[in-house]
Write a protein that binds this DNA or RNA. Sequence first.
DNA 1: ATAATAACGAGA
DNA 2: CTCGTTATTATC
Length: 662
Amino acid sequence: MANRSNRAERVPAPELPVARVCVDVPLPHLDRLFDYLVPADLHETAQPGTRVKVRFAGQLVDGWLIERAAESAVPKLAYLDRLVSPERVLTSEIAGLARAVADRYAGSLADVLRLAVPPRHARAEQSPPPEADAPPETDAPPETDAPPVTGTGWSEYQAGEGFLRALRDGKRPRAVWSALPGEDWPARIAEAAAVTAAAGKGVVAVVPDARDLDRLDAALTKVLGKDRHVTLAAGLGPAKRYRAFLSASRGQVKVVAGTRAATFAPVHDVGLLVIWDDGDDLHAEPRAPYPHAREVLLTRAQRAGAAALVGGFSRTAEAQLLLETGWAREVAADRATLRRRMPTITPTGDDPQLARDPGAATARLPSLAWEAARAALKADAPVLVQVPRRGYLPSVSCATCRAPARCTACSGPLALRSSHAVPACRWCGRVAGDHVCPHCGGRGLRASVTGARRTAEELGRAFPDIPVRTSGRDEVLTEVPATAAVVVATPGAEPVAEGGYGAVVLLDTWALLTRADLRAGEEALRRWMTAAALAKSGGRVVVVADGSVPVVQALLRWDPGWYAERELSERRELRFPPAARMASLTGAATAVADLLDAVHLPPDAELLGPVPADQGQERYLVRAPRAKAAEVAAALHAATGVRSARKAPDPVRVQVDATDLF
DNA sequence: ATAATAACGAGA
DNA sequence: CTCGTTATTATC
């Protein structure tokens, strides 16, 4: 009752009585701010960045108070129902970033905010973490020795020290970093973070998974001590995660390391944004609107005027584009340094007969690989064997030169839907009757077959006294000791070996190379380099593949830049991402047709499709030049809004930069 | 979900 | 032409 009478007596706040609120509803046509009155008793606490509850269309919904305003164009405003908490979880920087990310991905602000801010945990808000007693950020930074800018691991790289110097001087260098084989990359990131923090600026560093995060956390602890950074990942659990988030939003720590969602960490006065291994598909958010951590990070760096570091052993076409447009500079070692640090990498000719015939029970390991493994084990060093996971789509390549077969109409990849079907384009659906290879003129096609992992077991049997350990989907090893052992791992699950592996063997390479995926080559190289980088200096790497294939060449020469350059120029020619922007529209055939009916695409946007998708659905692709990317995203978002306002029953999934395009 | 509003149709 | 009822649509 008291509550109710209070309500009747509510008066607007004396200043800036209007709260502009993002309501947490998923409908795209409601993706704008709504005005509410701030009652006088919430004047002090209902600040921008807080969570609120508002009555919206008759029901109570959560919302984000984005800004306070003096007046509103709407004549009759409702009051905020209540303030969930005075905690300001959104900084204005992150609110703006979230809006920009939503726009880029044809999504809604509310969807992005749900990704950017972890769920509230009231206990975590009330019981401040121990470091809450630490001096507020207005105080001078603690008296520590300035972190070194010269004589670090960065000295091995051309422009490496320059990068650190620029960070120290509070500038905003932007770099694409090609890490040397064997590089202790967490240490390098920690050094860059320390220099930035010493200059009084914030740092956010994102890595693909929890294992990498543990390594980075350890490196940061070594350089910064225990209390000057936090880790932020969904795997921490709700309380710890929210607590870590709060210590960033409250300005208690300036350095945050985390997995993809940490890209949005509300670190104050951010000066450096780092992403490690941006080609790893874990950086792609699986929830709408499916933003990629690298794109979020680059957007943030651009908007906040922060430095950016995009690092990895290998290099994505997207990173190459940053270099070629002049947005970022290359940080890489010269050839002499590289030669000194590289393991010996040798190809063995691939024997397709071996992989193709499942009846070949005695799959022999190529003798080179066998010898390299034996030598390493004899020296009591572990051996890493990388085998790809099964289950890739059967794609089609030229029987003669093995170049991926492409559609003559739209350059999309050809693939088989069932084993005896005629190959068809995965983009436009056109059936490829008589294919002629543009590279060698060959007319034959072959379906690639995923190789058996039996080879790895064979390897184990070949060394009966040596323990064989596996690391993969079910059980992932983090580290193995520096003793003789055969470690069989799938890509991404390779444990680090203390002191490095004596030998690394890369098996069944064709399974990776002939995947029905735009990024097959780039991804294969990334996985090989990531594994090969774990070899000890002077160690051996054997890749079971034909050394004349460009991707294999890039590995042998350890030249990710050369391959990325090639890859990007090819994608330019074929108008593939990132040279062009692509969006996929997936849903029931009638729903997709309905959306296409409502959308106003710019004239130079192309529509490809339809092709059948999972569960009887249909898919179109929209392709547009990069200059028109924003326009296309806006048009798609508007069209989904028209549909949701009409209460159209079947949803259409709109995915800008879908990673599984093909 | 629900409240305001437009649209509609029957009876005066 | 008005009143009461039902679709429509916007949602502060």
